[in-house]
Computed example of a mutant assay.
Amino acid sequence: MKLQAKRLFIEFEYEYLDGSSASFRYMEPTTELIDGGIDIRDADVKEKMEYAKKALRSCLSGNENDIEKMIAELTTHANIYKFKVTLDEALGKLKAEGSNG
């Protein structure tokens, strides 16, 4: 058996409010991100919410300008936390199917 460090990911397209769109990958969190989440379990709510945004940003892959534009739009015009949950659920379904990893 041959093993390697490989992160599961989903690919998705995001449509901006201006009608343009961009493609991204959302990768499963690394051990460092998971450990960081455990480290702040006793933190206040604001710190936990900031960590969730940091984790989302760390798991996104794509054009940096597009990522920043999407995060800014989600922050001001939507619920970035719900968006992250949607991506996590899609990643979980992929993992359950045994695909891509």
Rank of each mutant, 00 (worst) to 15 (best):
Asp18Pro: 05
Lys2Met: 11
Tyr14Ser: 05
Phe83Asp: 13
Pro29Arg: 08
Thr75Val: 05
Gln4Leu: 13
Lys46Leu: 13
Ile67Gly: 09
Asn65Glu: 13
Leu3Ile: 12
Leu8Gln: 10
Ser58Phe: 01
Lys69Pro: 00
Pro29Cys: 02
Lys69Val: 07
Ala96Phe: 09
Gln4Asn: 11
Val45Met: 12
Lys84Ser: 13
Ile38Ser: 04
Met1Trp: 05
Lys2Trp: 04
Arg25Tyr: 02
Glu50Asp: 15
Arg25Asn: 08
Met27Ser: 11
Asn63Asp: 15
Ala43Asp: 11
Ala78Arg: 13
Ser20Ile: 01
Glu64Arg: 11
Ile38Met: 09
Phe24Gly: 06
Leu60Pro: 04
Ile80Asn: 04
Asp42Phe: 03
Leu94Ala: 12
Lys84Cys: 05
Asp42Gln: 11
Gly36Lys: 03
Met1Thr: 07
Glu15Leu: 11
Ala5Glu: 08
Leu17Phe: 06
Phe24Val: 07
Ile10Arg: 11
Glu73Asn: 08
Lys53Cys: 04
Ile10Cys: 06
Val85Leu: 14
Ile67Ser: 10
Gln4Ala: 14
Gly36Phe: 00
Glu68Thr: 14
Ile34Phe: 08
Pro29His: 07
Gly19Tyr: 05
Arg57Asn: 12
Asn100Met: 09
Glu11Pro: 06
Cys59Lys: 00
Met70His: 05
Ile34Lys: 13
Ala96Thr: 08
Leu87Asp: 09
Tyr14Ala: 09
Lys53Gly: 01
Asp18Val: 06
Leu17Met: 09
Pro29Ser: 11
Thr75Leu: 05
Thr31Cys: 00
Met27Ile: 02
Lys48Pro: 02
Glu64Met: 09
Glu97Thr: 06
Met70Arg: 06
Lys53Ala: 01
Glu15Tyr: 10
Lys82Thr: 14
Lys54Phe: 13
Leu56Cys: 03
Ala90Cys: 11
Thr76Ser: 15
Lys53Leu: 04
Asp66Ile: 03
Gly37Asp: 03
Leu74Phe: 04
Leu74Gln: 15
Leu8Ser: 10
Thr31Tyr: 07
Leu94Thr: 14
Gly92Cys: 06
Leu8His: 10
Arg25Lys: 14
Glu32Pro: 02
Lys6Cys: 09
Ile10Lys: 08
Ile80Thr: 11
Ser61Gln: 09
Arg25His: 07
Phe24Thr: 09
Asp35Cys: 03
Glu11Phe: 06
Leu56Tyr: 01
Gly92Thr: 12
Glu89Lys: 15
Glu64His: 09
Glu73Arg: 06
Tyr16Trp: 07
Leu17Tyr: 05
Ile71Tyr: 01
Asn79Gly: 06
Gly19Lys: 14
